[in-house]
Amino acid sequence: MTGHAQKLEVSSLTVTGDGGRRLLCVDSLTIAAGSAVVVRGPSGAGKSTFLYALAGMIAPETGQIRWGETDIAPLPEPARAAFRRRNMGFVFQEHLVFEELSAPENAAIAALYSGRADRGRIRDRAAAELARLGLDGVGTRRSDTFSGGERQRIAVARALAGGPGIILADEPTASLDRDNADRLARDLVTLARTEGRTLIAVSHDPALHERADRLIDIVDGRLLEAADG
């Protein structure tokens, strides 16, 4: 079962950091369900903060972050985590995986903290995603024996194993060589499109920019430009 792609509506969003410094300010933004969007901007511009706010990992100072019918901004942290668990898959920059676990264990990590009824489904789906990403038959090899590109594909399989309607990715290709970065960019966008997921990726990688439906620029915590791709 795949989660439903969800439309994103952001309004009057502000995120502040230590000492009240404003990190992010978004007046209004709408992203259509099922679209692939890449957020770009200079270092320190607030791209990751934007992504983490959309994921509910940062509680905003003000504003709304509405995924479909759910505004996650006012929710308490456990409820935001639960929303993230049920609706989102996340891919991080530095192919963050549990190195001492095997690829299937990593991809199905959500089975460890999901309800008993969901565990089998998550494991089956993790195996299927690994196969789709060319990592079938890797057995019980520890993940630290894989290359950086392979580990990032394990992370993608993990993001997809719960069947989320939303995929968020923070510089997913940044630590990969060109070939692996191209392959991952293609896989991410293809997997999102073929199953109608909403993909929002923060990235400097032109390979991802080229494949995106839409590019969003952030400078100094503000969306300066939102152009259709």
């Binding site: 639960a82 668990r85 991080f92 963050l96 903290y113």
Partner: peptide, 15 residues
């Protein structure tokens, strides 16, 4: 970092 990764993935705090 590993525990933060779990929480970022949506694992309950209780986990």
């Amino acid at each position: 970092r590993r525990l933060a990764l779990l929480r970022a993935l949506g694992a309950p705090r209780r986990f």
